[in-house]
Amino acid sequence: MFKKEQNLNNLNEVETIIGESVQVKGNFESNGNIIVNGILDGEIKTKGAILVGDKAKINANIKAEEMAVKGKVIGNLKINGYLSIGGSAGVLGDIECSQISIEKGAEINGNIVVNEKNNKNDNKISKKETETEEDAILKNE
């Protein structure tokens, strides 16, 4: 979990950066990772991760693969994977994700659903890989 959080807070491959002094209005779609430090009103969809900086103000429903929130978000969050909510964050809206961490001091007002469907899939994959290794050993014997 800690490693995931570190990765989210230091996105190496960023496609989009919205700076502090910029306001965006409308439907924002992306295929890569996004860092938001400015103001965004509308809707955000990405196949990558979103990092919301501590000075950001977002008024939007958000769909993403992973997300780290340090600023203010008004809107529903639908995150396929891991969601990290920092101590300075404020979220007003419903949250759906498969893993979550909430730091002391965070303000959340909404329903939180942590759906472990993705985790189960991860388990299935690792079990399958183990079986393959065992098969290989048996074959060698």
Binding site: S21, V22, Q23, V24, K25, N27, F28, G38, I39
Partner: peptide
């Protein structure tokens, strides 16, 4: 799809 306006 979206509009952008710099504030400074």
């Amino acid at each position: 799809s979206y509009q952008l306006s710099p504030q400074k």
